[in-house]
Design a protein around this nucleic acid. Structure first.
Lengths: 252, 252
DNA sequence: TTGTTATACTGGTATAGACCACTAGACCAA
DNA sequence: TTGGTCTAGTGGTCTATACCAGTATAACAA
């Protein structure tokens, strides 16, 4: 079965995305979607290298990063395996909306409302550590759970750091934002500072979320930092109070 | 100075410890003991490789692991640098209302509204892991910040675990609840699972909080566990949305 | 002076080949 | 059966080489 799996990976040598990165994403996806199950054995590095027509070191690089991410694990003399499911931890993990909804048993969906480059206002520039009016990519999305509106999300990214982002608007429809940032720009979120507060929905917000004007909403603001602790994203999300509870573990 | 540093690394080709690992440990130690300072530039990979008499890939492997550990950082076209100092913050510390308010610059105060023993309802018994109708200590307090109402707190403790608690009602006026539990019962909160959601204030709640009926409030529920992970407290707090933001760090 | 270009550096990706260390299982001898 | 050895296969380490892509700076042209 693994042989089939390996043969199904398609690599594009002319793509600007490095081969090892393509392999890495294929493996990561296979693990995420359950195509590769926990503790399942992968083909050997030499086998994969041969069947993918790349050097063994290239495969090793892909696997190596997944190992350090905790997705795979290696055993000398035995082989490479999918890591055990992570049980604990779930509560303070940095999750995307998609992951969050799935873990709550919902089927997530997204509707892209707006995607444009705008000058940073005071709040955004301060959160991202940039100057006022510097260009930021503004993404407004309506997030659905089981077809019903769940949240309204406004993401802001420093435009200078993600050139050509607007051209990827189609991918935003079916790919996670973080996946795009990881694959095309090699940027991975590491920590986030979040604030939560309660307020009332405006007329426009209420209409989009399909709630009554004046209904309570949970406003969540998040500054996401990359591995160098540089702000890479500022998100303001508005969750329907009747459908969403934020959960977190404190202490320890 | 970096040249000196590099020349000072001694590698043992016959050692069972891999070369890249020896390099890695030397670099890590140099950073830890301050020999290499944050943001300081390292010699280029090619330079290090030559001066250490190893292949560039060997140096790269050493540096690569340190980068994924957050000790170093690389910039294409520029070089490799020691990472910025990490300032671990106590954002996820388990705090009492009093500590929380002080850290926000407020002067906290408390008004005890109610203190009695009641049978546990469904929600409380489930949170505390006890049976329905078992006796719990119910404490209702109005929390003030700079004399103005900030939150309404309803705490529930398993009565069996804290005998004679009602006799201490006077101390509750000027001592923290956690202090009483710690001093008289040797119980210390360790972790807490919290949920946050938005809703509207009821008439009674609004009156106590001195806000208008129908104003939004942030409802915070917390199950506090002791060092043995036994539930010791269940709190439902209602914060004024116009005065309070909840802050938390996620990930990492 | 100002803007552009060349170039010499940096890290990033990928190849080919070699040998070592460890593991499981097959095999064989006591 | 028991205990050891051999062997094929795994990941682990390392070398040598090549070219790509981003960055700063010095040299040059307008």
């Amino acid at each position: 079965m693994n042989v089939d799996f390996c043969a199904r990976i398609k690599l594009d040598g002319d793509s600007p995305i490095p081969l090892y990165s393509q392999i890495m994403e294929s493996l990561r996806k296979a693990v995420e979607c359950g195509q590769l199950r926990p503790l399942e054995k992968l083909p050997s590095e030499r086998e994969m290298a041969e069947s993918l027509n790349v050097n063994r070191l290239t495969v090793r690089q892909a696997i190596g990063e997944l190992v350090s991410d905790g997705v795979l694990m290696r055993r000398r003399g035995l082989g490479t395996y999918v890591a055990r499911q992570k049980v604990e931890q779930g509560l303070n993990k940095l999750t995307s909306f998609t992951e969050d909804m799935i873990s709550r048993g919902f089927i997530p969906a997204t509707k892209l409302l707006e995607l444009q480059i705008v000058p940073a206002d005071k709040r955004v520039s301060q959160a991202l550590g940039m100057s006022l009016d510097e260009p930021v990519i503004a993404i407004e999305r309506l997030r659905l759970a089981d077809v019903e509106p769940m949240a309204l999300e406004m993401s802001h990214l420093p435009a200078a750091r993600f050139p050509g982002f607007l051209l990827r608007n189609k991918e935003l429809a079916y790919k996670s934002l973080y996946e795009i940032l990881r694959v095309y720009y090699r940027v991975t979120p590491t920590v986030a500072m979040e604030t939560l507060e309660a307020r009332l929905a405006t007329v426009k917000e209420a209409a989009l979320l399909k709630i009554h004007y004046g209904s309570p909403v949970l406003q969540r603001e998040r500054v996401t930092l990359d591995h160098e602790d540089t702000p890479m994203e500022f998100v303001r999300s508005l969750y329907r109070a009747d459908r969403y509870k934020f959960m977190v573990r404190m202490g320890k």
